[in-house]
Simulated scan of single mutants.
Amino acid sequence: MSASVSNTEVKAFWETNPVAAEGISARPGTVEFFRAFDALREADDCEPWEFSNCIHGYSESKGLRVLDVGCGNGYVLAQYAKYGAEVTGVDLTQTAIDLSCARFDLAGLRGEFRLTDGDRLPFEDGTFDIACSMGVLHHIEAPRPMISEMRRVLKPGGTIILMLYYWGSWKYHVVLRMKRILDPRYRGKSQAEALNMNDGAGCPLAKVYTRAQARELLSGFSDHRFELNQLSWRQLLLGFDRLLRPVLPHSNRSIFARTMGWNLYVTARKPR
Rank of each mutant, 00 (worst) to 15 (best):
D183A: 12
L154A: 03
E216A: 12
G89H: 00
G168E: 02
W233C: 02
R177W: 13
G70D: 01
K11C: 13
L238F: 04
R242T: 05
F128R: 01
F123A: 08
G158H: 00
F104M: 13
I97F: 08
D105E: 14
F221Y: 11
M146C: 12
W262S: 03
Q94I: 06
E141N: 14
R152Y: 08
E227N: 08
M146R: 15
P28E: 15
D117G: 12
T93Y: 04
F13C: 10
P145L: 11
V87S: 09
T16I: 02
Q191F: 03
L137Y: 12
F37Y: 15
L109E: 03
V174Q: 08
H138N: 12
W167P: 00
F37K: 13
A81E: 05
L228N: 03
F221S: 07
K207I: 07
M1H: 07
C54M: 07
A21L: 13
A26T: 09
G118F: 02
P271I: 03
S219D: 06
R144Q: 14
Y75R: 10
M134P: 00
G202D: 01
D183M: 14
E227V: 05
G158F: 00
T127R: 15
S133M: 00
W262E: 04
Y165H: 13
D199A: 05
L228A: 04
R151H: 13
A201Q: 07
T210I: 10
E216W: 12
N7F: 13
R27H: 15
S232F: 10
L67E: 03
M260N: 03
E149W: 01
K82F: 05
G135R: 13
H173W: 15
L67I: 05
N53T: 05
L67G: 02
S2G: 09
H56E: 10
G29S: 15
R120Q: 14
C132N: 11
V31P: 06
L164K: 13
D125A: 12
C101A: 05
I130Q: 03
Y75G: 02
F33R: 03
R272D: 00
C46V: 15
K270V: 00
G29V: 15
S6E: 10
E193K: 11
L228F: 09
V266C: 03
F240Q: 12
D44L: 06
C132D: 11
S148G: 09
E22L: 14
V153Q: 01
K179S: 14
L264N: 02
S254P: 01
A36Q: 15
R65P: 01
D223C: 02
S219T: 11
V208F: 15
